[in-house]
Design a protein around this nucleic acid. Structure first.
Lengths: 226, 226
DNA sequence: CATCTTCTTGACACTTTCTTGACGCTGGGA
DNA sequence: TCCCAGCGTCAAGAAAGTGTCAAGAAGATG
């Protein structure tokens, strides 16, 4: 998950489209909406997304057809949404080159899991997911952190905070950015909670008395060293 | 599952081929597709797969014939796919040397279970798939675990849990990952069941009062020590 | 059908993690 | 120099999560 992949979402029902947008955004993706097959094909051609989610039932052409057309020139991972009772179409879609299918109604987590799996398969290891900086080693996939070959245990919140900082390393993350990404929008003003967790995280990963990895930008936010 | 075994898949219907590929890939296998009996024989000869799945109905020769020809020189596990009403042919296929048959339509899990069972039977002791860590010895293929040279009996669920953990050792497996892989998607939120089985498994494989093999990450999941 | 194994579930004590308020420190502005 | 807003740290209580036991349900075996 390098940098918020764009995901094309094609469905003719506005509610579904909206729901998908929320789900994807929460999972760290950027949704590119389309409501017809034609639109989906155009968008894919103009600016290829990192993945596509297509409904089988579309007004102008069906998802299988869209899949086939995209596959004529692109290897982008494709997920197909099918209603119950469309099992045959699912198989067709797979045959046409879809990577996976999700049956409606679906849970957000299932969708995200399958999407991430498809993306993972599409990029057979873009190097490691591990990041090493000055004795600090972070493996985001394995959820593993060590310093000078000693394992460091992080709590869920600490790890999440570190993940957001590392994913945007070098870039300044405002207090609000961090609070919203790690705790959710309802914490956007809770500076104290952020400070406490940054302090705990630093105690675990920084050399004593120094702030080499997590830098403070007073009054603005934090950034992870490059 | 030592290292993603290659499975030859022979079927003349592209949809089935496609579906099988997805199913197998999800189960950790690499599918090698073939659409005719001739092709299947060639592929098996050129680069022998770890197992083969053959449809009984093929354009050039039938699955029984393919089975017979492969058996002339190879012991590779063979699964036969049969449509309902082909019972007689199933028996012929088994007589010709097939290891098992699956009746269409089949569920992914049934297929995978039978395939794994066939693979397990095929390699009585290639060694290799055994893992040893600090007095604990695990043979995933033989479904065998021992500690300090004493055999340990695990229930099916416990073994499955251990297998998933070991296959991903070092990486943190979330509660959801484990529940979905071992129990299926419908258990994805059943934390209590996971805890109970982890406790039982630990009682059997861990030194008393310690958690050296299976580590807990509170609020996230479990991981097997590297 | 009886028996044995395995799985699931609820209760409860225990542990870890999160949140909150207090407090001392620092650096820039008046 | 004094003031003060913002920061880092600490400790304690609240909240959330975990390990274990035991009993009943479900399933397999013979």
């Amino acid at each position: 998950m390098s940098k918020q992949p764009r995901v094309l979402v094609c469905d003719d029902e506005p509610q579904i489209l909206r729901a998908l947008r929320v789900i994807l955004r929460d999972a760290g993706f950027e949704a590119v909406p389309a409501s017809t097959g034609e639109e989906a094909l155009d968008l894919t051609a103009v600016r290829p997304p990192g993945a596509a989610i297509l409904d089988l039932m579309l007004p102008d052409m069906d998802g299988v057809e869209v899949t086939r057309r995209i596959r004529e020139w692109s290897e982008v991972p494709i997920l197909v949404l099918s209603a119950v009772g469309e099992e045959d179409r699912k198989v067709e879609a797979l045959a046409a080159g879809a990577d996976d299918y999700v049956t409606k109604p679906f849970g957000p987590r299932e969708l995200v899991a399958r999407l991430e799996a498809a993306l993972r398969r599409a990029q057979p290891e873009t190097g490691q997911s591990t990041i090493s900086v000055e004795g600090l080693e972070i493996d985001l996939a394995a959820r593993f952190v060590r310093r000078d070959s000693a394992e460091i245990h992080l709590t869920p919140t600490e790890f999440e905070l570190l993940r957001v900082l590392v994913r945007n390393r070098g870039r300044l993350m405002t207090h609000r950015d961090l609070l919203v990404e790690v705790w959710g929008i309802e914490y956007e003003d809770d500076l104290q909670v952020l400070r406490a967790h940054v302090a705990n995280l630093r105690r675990k990963i920084e050399p004593p008395g120094e702030h080499v990895f997590i830098r403070t930008d007073p009054g603005v936010g934090y950034r992870f060293a490059e």
